[in-house]
Simulated scan of single mutants.
Amino acid sequence: MPIDELPESVPPPTGAGESLSAPTRRTFIATSTVAGGAVVAGGVIGGSSLGGPEEAAGAEAAPSSRVSLTVNGSRRTVTVDNRTSLLDLLREQLGLTGSKKGCNAGACGACTVLVDGRRVNSCLTLTVRLEGAEVSTIEGLADGDELHPLQQAFMDEDAFQCGYCTPGQIMSGVGCIKEGHTGSPEEIREWMSGNICRCGCYVKIVRAVEQTAGRK
């Protein structure tokens, strides 16, 4: 058949309301994106995808408690979120920033304080469990301008470099002496092993604890 006699292509018949052509890949992606965005926006605006109003209200109203405790000889009554650690109470609410936040996981000892005379990692200690407790921090060791003997020993022995771990080291050393774990340098190292010094002043720290315990 000659080329000029080829029959013209006839488009298939379409019914009322039907598309004249099948959707292309581009129009499919564009349509899906618009529809998906509308669903997400509707969920965020309406709150359906992130939980109902009851869940939002529950998240805003975290349980809290009123706690009375003694910090460095002063009675304090505070209202705290039940999840508040003793470290965060001391630093953020009471302004006692000597206790340092190092690992915040109980592994470095920089936050060590005494609770009822015993050493604790304040980052792992919940404030709500300390009703009636007595807490001692590095700020409460000195008697006016007179340093605590262990504070003086740290200076005498030059038992620090950067100083970040020093408050926790001193508080742990005070507890170590009170517990009677100063029979030998080896015993001191063992019972002070929870306090990390990244500057490596361990030998001088042990000497300072020995000096304060009366061994030197």
Results as ranks from 00 to 15, higher is better:
residue 150 L to Q: 09
residue 65 S to E: 15
residue 84 T to F: 02
residue 153 A to E: 14
residue 98 G to W: 08
residue 97 T to Y: 03
residue 57 A to M: 12
residue 15 G to E: 14
residue 122 S to E: 09
residue 91 R to G: 05
residue 186 E to W: 03
residue 9 S to G: 15
residue 38 A to P: 05
residue 34 V to W: 14
residue 196 I to R: 10
residue 85 S to Q: 06
residue 41 A to H: 08
residue 133 A to W: 14
residue 140 G to I: 02
residue 124 L to I: 03
residue 98 G to L: 11
residue 82 N to M: 00
residue 197 C to I: 01
residue 131 E to F: 06
residue 162 C to K: 09
residue 7 P to H: 04
residue 128 V to C: 08
residue 109 G to A: 03
residue 119 R to P: 10
residue 42 G to A: 04
residue 180 G to A: 11
residue 39 V to S: 10
residue 212 T to L: 06
residue 212 T to Q: 10
residue 162 C to D: 09
residue 187 E to I: 03
residue 67 V to I: 11
residue 115 V to I: 04
residue 90 L to F: 02
residue 207 R to L: 13
residue 63 P to A: 12
residue 104 N to T: 15
residue 130 L to W: 06
residue 158 D to V: 12
residue 111 C to G: 15
residue 215 R to S: 09
residue 171 M to S: 08
residue 190 E to G: 01
residue 104 N to G: 14
residue 183 G to T: 12
residue 123 C to T: 09
residue 152 Q to N: 03
residue 159 A to Q: 13
residue 44 V to D: 07
residue 4 D to Y: 01
residue 174 V to I: 13
residue 77 T to D: 13
residue 69 L to H: 09
residue 182 T to C: 02
residue 166 T to W: 06
residue 144 G to M: 02
residue 110 A to S: 14
residue 140 G to V: 01
residue 199 C to D: 12
residue 203 V to R: 14
residue 138 I to K: 03
residue 143 D to R: 14
residue 74 S to I: 07
residue 115 V to M: 04
residue 37 G to S: 13
residue 152 Q to W: 00
residue 184 S to Q: 10
residue 113 V to W: 08
residue 201 C to G: 03
residue 33 T to C: 11
residue 135 V to W: 11
residue 197 C to G: 01
residue 209 V to C: 04
residue 7 P to R: 13
residue 117 G to S: 06
residue 134 E to A: 02
residue 86 L to F: 04
residue 74 S to W: 00
residue 97 T to V: 08
residue 86 L to V: 05
residue 199 C to S: 11
residue 179 E to I: 01
residue 212 T to Y: 06
residue 129 R to N: 14
residue 85 S to R: 05
residue 63 P to I: 08
residue 48 S to H: 12
residue 160 F to Q: 13
residue 209 V to D: 07
residue 199 C to I: 13
residue 53 P to Q: 01
residue 216 K to G: 15
residue 64 S to P: 10
residue 131 E to R: 04
residue 30 A to Y: 15
residue 208 A to T: 05
residue 19 S to Y: 09
residue 57 A to E: 15
residue 183 G to V: 12
residue 159 A to F: 09
residue 160 F to I: 12
residue 61 A to Y: 01
residue 48 S to D: 07
residue 162 C to H: 13
residue 26 R to F: 11
residue 85 S to E: 08
residue 44 V to Y: 13
residue 169 Q to L: 03
residue 49 S to P: 05
residue 215 R to C: 00
residue 35 A to N: 15
residue 175 G to F: 00
residue 48 S to M: 07
residue 99 S to L: 00
residue 21 S to Q: 12
residue 126 L to M: 14
residue 20 L to G: 12
residue 144 G to H: 07
residue 119 R to T: 07
residue 144 G to D: 09
residue 199 C to M: 07
residue 177 I to P: 04
residue 64 S to I: 10
residue 186 E to S: 06
residue 181 H to Y: 13
residue 213 A to L: 12
residue 30 A to M: 14
residue 43 G to Y: 02
residue 181 H to E: 12
residue 52 G to S: 14
residue 196 I to C: 04
residue 117 G to E: 02
residue 92 E to S: 01
residue 7 P to W: 05
residue 151 Q to E: 11
residue 179 E to T: 03
residue 67 V to D: 06
residue 129 R to K: 15
